[in-house]
C-alpha cells in the first residue's frame, strides 16, 4: 500500500466532491420536480400525455445509465447542431461543458425513477381526505398542497433517500464522458504509478461516508415528516 500516494492524492480527490454533489443536486432538483409532475399527470390519467409518459418511464428504466450518458454526450450535441442548422443557425456545441450533458442524462434518469416513487406515494394517501378537502370548499391545488402532497412526501422520503444515494454513486459514471468528479479524479491520479488499489479504496471510503451522511439526513427528514403518524388508540 502506497501511503504517501494516498496522503498526496486524498486532498485532490476531496476537491472533486463538489463536482459530484453539483451533478447530484442539479439532477435531483430538476429531475424530481419533473418526476412529481409525471406522477401527477399519470395519476390524473390525462389522455395522450399519460401514455407517452408511461412509455418514457418504462424506457428510461430499461436503459443502462452509462448508455444514457453516452447518448447525451455524443448524440445530443449532434441533434442540437443539426436542429440549429435547420433553423438556419450554427450553434457551437463544442463550447458546452461535458457536465451539462451528464446532468441532462441524470435528470432524465431521476425524473423516471422518482415519478414511480411519487406515483405510489400519492396512491397511498386515502382518497377520502381529498374528498373531505373538496367538501370544505378547497380547490384541487389547495387540497394537493396542504393535504395530499405533505403526506405523499412523508411516504416517499425513504425511497427518495435511496434514490439520491444511488444517484450520488451513479454520478461516478460521468467519468466516461470526461467529467472530473470523484472517480475520474482518483483514476487520473492513480495512472502515473498505477496506484489503482489505493485510489479505489479511497473513493469507496468517500462514497461510503457520503452515503452514511445522507442516509442519516433522510432518516431525520422521514421522522420529522411522519410525526403525525402517532400510535392509534382507537
Amino acid at each position: 500500500m502506497d501511503f504517501p500516494f494516498m496522503l498526496q492524492a486524498l486532498p485532490e480527490i476531496i476537491k472533486a466532491i463538489p463536482v459530484t454533489f453539483f451533478m447530484a443536486v442539479a439532477a435531483t432538483a430538476v429531475g424530481w420536480i419533473l418526476g412529481l409532475f409525471i406522477a401527477l399527470i399519470r395519476r390524473a390519467k390525462t389522455p395522450g400525455i399519460s401514455q407517452v409518459l408511461a412509455v418514457f418511464v418504462s424506457f428510461m428504466r430499461g436503459v443502462p445509465l452509462v448508455i444514457l450518458l453516452y447518448i447525451a454526450y455524443y448524440a445530443l450535441p449532434t441533434m442540437i447542431y443539426s436542429y440549429g442548422l435547420s433553423i438556419g443557425r450554427e450553434i457551437d456545441v463544442s463550447g458546452v461543458p461535458a457536465i451539462l450533458y451528464a446532468i441532462t442524462a441524470l435528470v432524465l434518469d431521476q425524473a423516471a425513477y422518482s415519478s414511480e416513487i411519487f406515483r405510489s406515494a400519492l396512491g397511498s394517501v386515502d382518497e377520502g381526505q381529498l374528498e373531505a378537502a373538496y367538501s370544505v370548499g378547497m380547490t384541487k391545488t389547495q387540497a394537493m398542497i396542504r393535504i395530499i402532497l405533505p403526506q405523499a412526501f412523508a411516504v416517499a422520503v425513504p425511497n427518495l433517500g435511496g434514490l439520491f444515494v444511488g444517484l450520488v454513486k451513479g454520478t461516478s459514471l460521468a467519468y466516461y464522458v470526461g467529467v472530473y468528479e470523484i472517480t475520474a479524479t482518483a483514476q487520473l491520479l492513480a495512472l502515473p504509478k498505477l496506484n489503482y488499489i489505493e485510489a479505489y479504496i479511497m473513493t469507496t471510503v468517500i462514497y461510503e461516508v457520503i452515503s452514511i451522511i445522507f442516509n442519516k439526513v433522510f432518516n431525520v427528514a422521514e421522522n420529522s415528516l411522519k410525526r403525525f403518524r402517532g400510535v392509534a388508540t382507537a
Partner: peptide
Amino acid sequence: TAMVFQNYNLFANK
C-alpha cells in the same frame, strides 16, 4: 355545504 363522512376523513397530517 359541509359534509361529515363515514370514515371521518380527517386530514392525517394535521
